[in-house]
Design a protein around this nucleic acid. Sequence first.
DNA 1: AGTCTATAAAATGTATACATTTTTATTTTT
DNA 2: AAAAATAAAAATGTATACATTTTATAGACT
Lengths: 215, 215
Amino acid sequence: MQKQPAQQLYAKIKLDIRSNQLPVGEPLKQEALSKRYGVSRIPIRDVLQRLKNEGWLTGSGKRGVMVPPFTAGEAEDLYMMRMYLEPLLLGHAIPKLNQQTLGKAADFLAVIDQSKGLTIEELGELNWQFHACLYEAANRPTLFNTVAALHQQCGRYIGFHSQKLNYLEASQKEHYQLLDAVKQKQLNRGKNILKAHISDAGEILVEYLLQSLHF
Amino acid sequence: MQKQPAQQLYAKIKLDIRSNQLPVGEPLKQEALSKRYGVSRIPIRDVLQRLKNEGWLTGSGKRGVMVPPFTAGEAEDLYMMRMYLEPLLLGHAIPKLNQQTLGKAADFLAVIDQSKGLTIEELGELNWQFHACLYEAANRPTLFNTVAALHQQCGRYIGFHSQKLNYLEASQKEHYQLLDAVKQKQLNRGKNILKAHISDAGEILVEYLLQSLHF
DNA sequence: AGTCTATAAAATGTATACATTTTTATTTTT
DNA sequence: AAAAATAAAAATGTATACATTTTATAGACT
């Protein structure tokens, strides 16, 4: 639990970025935001810096921050990095996984299966919970934090291809395969499934981006 | 160029962290820092958050930030990540490298060779310049930024094993090998040299940390 | 007219003052 | 005496006010 006001403000601004309520590409004025959200510029500045560090905003340095446009290149890089780093984390985790953690992971998958009334954001969050639950067992805070940050940044792209989500079935299938491999402590198989899983998601996203941004 | 005061403050505090002028492990008080550096708490807060995001400070969330202790685990993770990500960047860069960039890279190595009067920090900076100079050619901002951040975090450890730096000769040898491979556009050889280069540095550091922290 | 300079306006950075929250110490109760 | 509750203190979060810097505009000069 953080202190409430800033936490709320953070959530609100992030939501507004997600739903394109804030202008893309042009610098955000602190004072304008201050009036818009009904707080002084101080907490606005804090939140802006935080969002900048999480990839929701980009700072052109001297000029103010702005909402960055989506690019295929960024998506490609993010998924590429995840493709190489997450299997490392999983590799450390597998030998240490206990029954309880595996149960929790299975539970997340079950919830995703019944994803009728869930928003795309909630779905993304559950997806991360599943992965994070396994990764935490690795007990590698530094590696974990970097991976978590990459996920955050990918999250910015999640709302983008909303409907294109018949992909969810394929994803869940891979999740269950992964869980199976992990349960049996099959290190290399697990890593390979995970790598393919991330690679697939990345390819779909990048392809979609290339199409969408080409007009 | 940024606005001066905050930039200076940032540099000063970072230097004080490096040289152990600030207490390790116990929370830093904003007001105390404010008095110490002769500015109000506002810029202090900004700088603290920034340093936190760069790994020079850790925030236990609700409680204030603190100077994190060195751990072998963190060093291991940082070098592991670099080992996997930097070759990717180099791979993208090699086909795009031109004569001018290669010349610049060679110049950096030459400067390092004459490193009589340089501090360990300046040496680390030059080392990064050499690598960054190659990596920038890749034109992969997202990947580059992550790698740069990892370097930053490694930088925290650089001052640690000051004297243990007969390692520099080996490092330079590897640098020249790398430059040679890159000049000849030998993609796989270059990647392998780089991977080994990072791996070596990581091992030396981790080993030293394990010894130092064990008493 | 075009470019450069100077001046005004806007925006960000910082300090002081205040509010809220968290922590510590003291008191009260069982 | 131990534990809980409460009050005081300290520390952080936020608002307002001011300073500095940056950007835009208008005027002067070649």
